[in-house]
């Protein structure tokens, strides 16, 4: 293609973005826009699928039948989100198998929060309340993302996430109003998940290498620090409401900014977990890799059967 043409295409593309017209799979788009989206959407898909594991860890031990059914439904929703996100990535030309192999080889990332272990039933509450809460904060703006298929997938995902967040908060509320043991269990879960949940928004704005371009392309609508501040401001009163304490001695209402000031995040821990040194990184990937490996014979057999059936049908027809 001539350079002149590319300039025209780029100008038209940016005009669409500026006028809030969605980019659709068959539209021309700059290669970096495509790559950025593939990276982000497949990371998001992996996060949903790896995210099934810490909660799946408590399904067989859920304390009653209702909680068991709700948890099953929730983890099933996450698998469903994984599916539509992989499909959204496919509309950009990504190959689902290749994307999954990249996860297993460590090339592709997923949300670091899932590298923390779920150690008690209260963690099902904390994960729903804080982790899904942070996910919603990140994802609601994505419903207005410039790429059509991703934006539309997010509309449905957000509806379900909001149910997840509420059920998590309901678990925490029940525990906080329960016996001393239950309250301690809830507080311990909050202590362990608070800081990792704040890290979910990614590095501080000055260290975020993708933010500016993503905002220009309207893939992203708020910076990491803006979203983190929103999360703190919404969550602190919720904790107060149920009588739990946010594990941050520096947390203080700042009247001038109309938000909370909060303590420093341990970014060293964040980068260590991203690099693979979290408590569960190896286990999570190993579990997913094994699921794929143990299922290889099933997929081969299903393909072989489909081939045989096709052959039989052609024979019958002729």
């Amino acid at each position: 293609m001539k350079e002149h043409n590319i300039e025209v295409l780029e100008r038209d593309f940016q005009a669409k973005i500026d006028n809030d017209i969605k980019i659709e799979p068959k539209d021309w788009m700059p290669d970096e826009y495509r790559q950025t989206l593939i990276r982000q959407i497949s990371q998001h898909a992996h996060s949903e699928v790896v995210g099934m594991l810490p909660e799946g860890n408590w399904i067989t031990r859920a304390p009653n039948l209702r909680r068991k059914a709700v948890l099953l439904a929730k983890v099933q929703d996450e698998a469903g989100h994984g599916l539509y996100l992989y499909s959204a990535a496919e509309t950009l030309g990504a190959d689902r198998e290749q994307t999954i192999d990249d996860l297993h080889s460590g090339k592709a990332k997923y949300s670091s929060i899932f590298n923390y272990p779920t150690l008690s039933w209260a963690d099902m509450g904390a994960v729903g309340w804080l982790v899904d809460g942070a996910a919603i904060m990140n994802q609601v703006p994505l419903c207005r993302c410039s790429y059509g298929p991703y934006a539309r997938a997010m509309v449905r995902v957000c509806k379900e996430e909001s149910f997840h967040q509420r059920q998590g908060f309901e678990i925490m509320t029940t525990l906080a109003q329960g016996t001393a043991e239950q309250k301690a269990m809830a507080q311990d879960a909050l202590n362990r998940f608070w800081w990792p949940a704040l890290m979910m928004f990614g590095p501080p704005d000055e260290d975020s290498k993708h933010t500016k371009q993503s905002m220009d392309w309207k893939i992203k609508r708020h910076t990491n620090d803006e979203l983190r501040q929103m999360m703190v401001d919404i969550t602190v009163p919720q904790a107060e409401l149920i009588g739990l304490t946010i594990p941050d001695p520096d947390l203080k209402w700042n009247k001038e900014k109309g938000g909370y000031d909060f303590g420093e995040i341990n970014w060293d821990e964040f980068w260590q977990v991203v690099k693979g040194n979290g408590p569960c990184n190896k286990d999570r990937i190993e579990t997913r890799r094994k699921a794929k490996e143990n299922g290889a014979w099933v997929r081969e057999a299903a393909n072989a059967f489909a081939e045989k059936r096709k052959l039989r049908n052609t024979k019958k027809a002729s």
């Binding site: 099934m52 594991l53 399904i59 099933q76 579990t287 699921a291 143990n294």
Partner: peptide, 25 residues
């Protein structure tokens, strides 16, 4: 429910969770 997160393909992970949900119901 022990299969949740370990299915041979994501579609079957979802299907087995569905079966489990029906049975728990």
């Amino acid at each position: 429910s022990e299969w949740c997160g370990h299915g041979p393909i994501l579609e079957e992970d979802i299907a087995m969770t569905n079966l489990s949900l029906d049975l728990i119901g």
